[in-house]
């Protein structure tokens, strides 16, 4: 998994790429949380999933975990550009009712 971060205005853009599974998630979680802590004053976090080639339910746990962390800072979370495979996993899990797609 690769993670790129780009703060812009009041928003934090996070670009995820690679395969998001149980094996890759712990490093990604630490990196993402460090970036969130660093940019805690912003009002929105947008996770761009265009580069995520594979995602299973571990990805759901990861996204909901970040949603909860961002909520503590009062930061709203959004998802952007999931490919059709990630989209299916997100739909089945009902994630979009918590974290809207923009």
């Amino acid at each position: 998994m690769k993670l790129l971060c780009c703060p812009k205005g009041d928003s934090l853009y996070l670009y995820l790429s690679g395969e998001l599974d149980d094996c890759s998630v712990s490093r990604l979680r630490a990196e993402t949380d460090a970036l969130i802590d660093e940019h805690a004053g912003l009002s929105r976090a947008i996770f761009n999933l265009a580069g995520v080639r594979f995602m299973d339910s571990t990805g759901i746990g990861f996204l909901i975990g970040r949603y909860k962390k961002l909520k503590q800072y009062g930061i709203a979370m959004f998802l952007e550009n999931p490919d059709s495979c990630a989209d299916k996993v997100l739909l089945v899990s009902g994630v979009y009712s918590l974290i809207p797609k923009v």
């Binding site: 299973d56 746990g61 089945v92 899990s93």
Partner: peptide, 15 residues
Amino acid sequence: QEEHSGMGFTIMQTF
């Protein structure tokens, strides 16, 4: 506590 979503079996059943 380890952020498991509890959706694994549901995804297997659905897919």
